[in-house]
Computed example of a mutant assay.
Amino acid sequence: MSVIKLPLLFIGSKGEKNLYTLFDSGANLSCINPDFIKDVENPISLGRVRRIATASEGHYIEIKERVILDFYIHDILLSDEFLLVPNLSEEAIIGAATLQKWRIKLDFEHDTVIVDPKVAKLQLI
């Protein structure tokens, strides 16, 4: 399995932080380790706890909070919701929903991420 991991700048209402971010088309939603966002953004309660299945059969993680963060990929400003996943093995993960939303393509041959240039124009409107 190919993996792309890049440092991205995440920005919230309290500050900003560079996080090594895994781009994972096999993960549906984007998530972030709560230990890395304390000085960036205040968590928002989900209201109802979500139980997310893991790769281990019969094992679930309870998700109780989320954050909405801006982030940069190659100087293009994007924004999305990230679930706070306790004990997440990565600092942050960009999942398939975010990849599709922002038309992000993964180039495993060159270990890079491609953002459709039209996305930058859409934000100017």
Rank of each mutant, 00 (worst) to 15 (best):
N87S: 13
L8S: 04
T54S: 11
L78Y: 02
R50D: 05
M1Y: 05
A97C: 08
K118V: 14
I63Y: 02
M1T: 12
E16N: 13
D111E: 15
T54A: 03
G47H: 01
W102S: 12
C31I: 09
I76E: 08
H59M: 10
V119S: 02
S13K: 15
K118Y: 12
I68H: 12
G47E: 02
A97F: 08
L9N: 11
N42R: 11
G15K: 03
E81V: 13
D70F: 08
T112L: 11
G12Y: 07
K118W: 09
L46Y: 08
Y72C: 03
E91L: 01
L124T: 09
I93N: 05
L124D: 03
I73T: 06
H59K: 15
S56P: 00
P7T: 10
A27Y: 01
L84P: 09
S89Y: 06
L77A: 06
F82E: 05
H59W: 00
Q123T: 06
V67C: 09
E109Q: 13
I11A: 04
S89T: 13
D39A: 12
E16Y: 06
I52K: 02
I37Q: 03
T54Y: 02
S13H: 14
I61A: 06
I32Y: 05
I76Y: 04
L122E: 15
A55Y: 02
W102T: 11
L83E: 11
A97T: 15
V67M: 09
A97P: 00
V67A: 10
D70Y: 11
I52G: 01
H74M: 02
P7I: 11
L19R: 02
I11T: 11
T98E: 08
A120W: 03
N42A: 09
E57W: 01
I37L: 03
E90C: 12
H59P: 00
P117I: 07
E62V: 01
C31S: 13
P117E: 10
Y60P: 00
L19C: 03
